[in-house]
Design a protein around this nucleic acid. Structure first.
Lengths: 126, 126
DNA sequence: GCTTGACCTGGAGCGCGCTCCAGCCCCGAG
DNA sequence: CTCGGGGCTGGAGCGCGCTCCAGGTCAAGC
């Protein structure tokens, strides 16, 4: 598939896909006779995984490191796994922080409910 | 307290505090005789809340909107509550996404465990 | 009185992650 | 054969959220 379809399927813009290729996150795909990029299903699988890493807050440089290890082949499996384990730890921490702050947010919202309730009918100064 | 202590207590750098003040996230604090900022406990409470909004991914412009409503007084309580409810929704969605991707990450890590296990002992080509 | 160091202001600069653009090529439809 | 649309490259630009800096004031300790 050409870049437009790949963009739609992967959720990354065409510009972003070319950018990711330029910085080494995505391996250069095949080209057709006219020099246009032709992406494979495997490219899609990889890009979807990249999307997960991105969605969980991994930065581009770390994704690049993972991509480089991946390109080196099976002997880097352990290292890649460790990278993912470290990342997982960060994601768990991030979820914990969000949950804490969500609880505080809930409380704050409740406080507003009380305020709003108390404020009703102050118009008639009874 | 002066800015250095406030920085330590709030978790924001002095530069960031001055920046937040400049863009209206934090109300200008008192000044001492020499023109130095003197922060109060109330400033700390507010700044901590800002920190929660930030930690849950709220952007500066939306925090600014909340801060402006807050400055307008009690009659904006409903609007502020709605803003927080909308934000809470986003935070919940964000947590859901993280949990999904965390599960995928777990699977991937397991896949590596299997790969690594299978790869062991290939040295002796049996 | 002098030094030291925290603090002040306004404004420039930066790192990240794209996003946009000019100027070009190529292909397929009509 | 022309036209339109998608794709290409290299490089500039951007929005966000700070971060840093020069050049100055002020206050407390020696």
């Amino acid at each position: 598939m050409y870049i437009k379809e790949f963009s739609a399927r992967s959720g990354f813009s065409s510009d972003t896909l070319r950018y990711y290729e330029k910085i080494g996150l995505i391996a250069p795909p095949m080209r057709d006779g006219g020099g246009r990029r032709v992406y494979s299903k495997a490219d899609l699988t990889w890009t979807e995984f990249l999307g997960r890493l991105k969605a969980t807050g991994m930065g581009i440089s770390e994704m690049g490191r993972y991509a480089r290890l991946r390109a080196e082949g099976d002997q880097t499996a352990t290292e890649r796994q460790q990278l993912l384990k470290a990342h997982r730890k960060k994601v768990r921490a991030q979820i914990a922080i969000l949950n804490e702050n969500l609880a505080a947010l809930d409380k704050k919202i409740d406080t507003y409910s009380a305020m709003i309730e108390a404020g009703k009918g102050e118009r008639n100064g009874s």
